[in-house]
Amino acid sequence: MSLPAPRADRESQWLKGVLDLAVLAALAREGSAYGYGLLRSLADAELGGLKGGTVYPVLGRLEDEGLVRSEWVTGGAGPPRRYFFLTAGGRAALDEGRAGWTSFADRMTRALEG
């Protein structure tokens, strides 16, 4: 009897729970980023395949919570672009999230090892 195939959407379910942390971490790495730049940064962190339709609402929610702020920046050519920055609250939330994830991952690893 073969083992059941792993749920194809399992990773996306995991990611859904921690995507806000991944976005905060990407912003911390980049210093500031516009939407597509942030997607590229997430892809560099091997979180490719994320769509704009997933990441922008997360940014909006983080902005509502005061963890991220945005600013219109006018470049040399082309229209202004909205850049996102981490706030002090965002840094604190990221630190707290990292600690929480590490603790959770350790417990989960132990649980999976049986």
Partner: peptide
Amino acid sequence: EVVHDVLDHVRATGEDPVEAFGQPADY
């Protein structure tokens, strides 16, 4: 702001907006 983000994203990537964001009602 939401609309501008879509415009900026599509301008930067050249992606189809439905491909990148889903149907307007869903987004």
